[in-house]
Design a protein around this nucleic acid. Structure first.
Length: 442
RNA sequence: GUGAUUGUAGCUCAGUUGGUUAGAGCACCGGUUUGUGGUUCCGGGGGUCGCGGGUUCGAAUCCCGUCUUUCACCCCA
């Protein structure tokens, strides 16, 4: 039998996991510094928690888990006979796999509302699953790293999340632009253009601007039934680069002006501490997710051509569907896989990743092998990451193994003497144990 | 979900209009050589040609289905 893995999934090699952990650790450290606490939620949620939260498209992409036992016995026979999968599903599947971290978090907040003291700041790094067709940078299983604050309307949160983006990406050595906009500004635009009811359609179209160009955007707006005049107004607003200029256009929209005011306030906070990366107002930023209601954020790499490597925004009504009203939240997400790709392309990972072996011990004779085992334990007692080739073998073979394992140092034990070989700078010297330990511990 | 695309050894790939026993490089194993750090040379194991049907005297090769890969759309991270 030939082994395979399901489509859209991947194995991670040791080096890949170490690199991924490096990214996770960098993000985690910043989250913790800013006062966020970790939570985890189950891989599976009740299907009722998940369905209807991501739109029709999203429901289709949910992985459903078959009930255990003789599930067909309890199946909806009518739906089964009609071959109606949609109807049948609810009778044979009660659970589904996590589609993102935000909805499970909303569920968590509502379920634990009595024990949470608000404002509640949490981070969460876990895989999610989508039954999507795989393509470039898109998988059926992938990690999300989220940080959210719920229970506060303060715009300080938005400023803080921008600072987190700034700090994490500086720590990773990446040069990025953090784009900001506000849903209310987009609503204001729709209002001024007289197409408030088509606001959602409008945002998804203008979100594609940098991908398909202004002409196509125009075309698509017209295609979805927006009048020539309204399209003209939208297109003109899209050229605006500053908030002050935008204020002129949106002055008749209360909603729009509120958006501008919010962004100004965020900037007021940000002005108090300069960021390393560029923070830029971008009116074309819309973001697909429709639960956003206020500020929206997106991060793009300045050095590598790649979609967004992070995004987020404020949502006012997320917990409402679970019965908890008036809990405003704002959050961000890091696209771990894409950050990984950008880091790889720029060769930005540290050379000595945490978890790599420091030194391999080798011996060609049985007597020396026992001596080596003694040394091995002493090195380990000194907290040096080391390994011993498990049996005496040919020198060539063991050296080859050392090279394959990417070990920077090898100690050859011969006639009770220790020879330390530097695999990187190709030198070697005979040392006693004390100097060995001294040299290898950092 | 729509439209393309891919599948041959563990990996990267050759394979003629359909025609003997399907090949190479790398990797692996054994030996050889190198004054003992990726060298040289020799040998070895390893493949139901993604899977299932069909056409044919004969299929890796042609046809159909299915799964998988990659990519675009949709949507999204």
């Amino acid at each position: 039998m030939k082994p395979t893995i399901p489509k859209g999934t991947r194995d991670f090699t040791p080096i890949q996991v170490l690199k991924r952990n490096y990214i996770f650790d960098t993000i985690k450290k910043v989250f913790i510094k800013y006062g966020y606490m970790p939570i985890e939620t189950p891989t599976m949620e009740n299907l009722s928690t998940l369905t209807g939260k991501y739109g029709e498209e999203g429901d289709r992409l949910l992985f459903k888990v078959l009930n255990s036992g003789d599930y067909l016995k309890k199946a909806n026979k009518e739906a089964l006979g009609d071959l109606n999968s949609n109807k049948l599903t609810s009778s044979i599947s009660k659970k589904g796999m996590r589609y993102d971290l935000t909805v499970p978090f909303a569920r968590y907040v509502v379920m634990h509302q009595n024990e949470i003291s608000f404002p509640f700041k949490r981070y969460q790094i876990q895989p999610v699953w989508r039954a999507d067709r795989p393509q470039k940078g898109r998988y059926q299983e992938f990690y999300q790293c989220d940080a959210d604050i719920v229970g506060s309307k303060s715009l300080m949160s938005e400023a803080e999340l921008i600072q987190i983006y700034d700090e994490v990406f500086s720590n990773l050595g990446l040069n990025v632009t953090i784009k900001v906009n506000n849903r209310k500004i987009l609503e204001g635009m729709a209002e001024i253009a007289g197409i408030s009811e088509k606001m959602v359609a409008m945002t998804t179209i203008i979100d594609k601007l940098d991908k398909i160009g202004i002409e196509k955007v125009k075309e698509e707006l017209l295609k979805c039934g927006i009048s020539e005049k309204s399209v003209q107004i939208i297109i003109e607003s899209l050229q605006i680069k500053t908030l002050t200029a935008l204020g002129e256009v949106l002055k008749d929209s209360e909603r729009g002006m509120k958006g501008i005011e919010e962004l100004n306030l965020v900037h007021e906070y940000l002005d108090l501490k300069s960021t390393t990366n560029k923070v830029e107002f971008d009116i074309t930023l819309a973001r697909g997710l429709n639960y956003y209601t206020g500020c929206i954020l997106e991060v793009v790499s300045n050095d590598v051509e790649m979609g967004s490597i992070g995004g987020g925004g404020r949502y006012d009504n997320l917990t409402e569907i679970f019965g908890l009203k008036d809990v405003s939240g704002v959050g961000i997400s890091f696209g771990a896989a894409r950050i990984f790709d950008v880091m790889t392309e720029l060769d930005n990972f540290p050379k000595d990743l945490e978890g790599l072996l420091t030194v391999l011990l080798i011996s060609e004779s049985k007597v020396d092998h026992l001596e080596a085992f003694k040394l091995l334990n002493q090195l380990r007692a000194a907290n040096i990451s080391c390994d011993l080739y498990p049996e005496p073998a040919k020198y060539k073979r063991m050296i080859k193994y050392a090279i394959n394992r990417n070990v920077p140092f090898v100690i050859n034990i011969e006639n009770g003497e220790y020879t330390l070989k530097d695999m990187v700078n190709s030198g070697q010297e005979k040392l006693n144990m004390e100097t060995l330990i001294q040299k290898l511990s950092k």
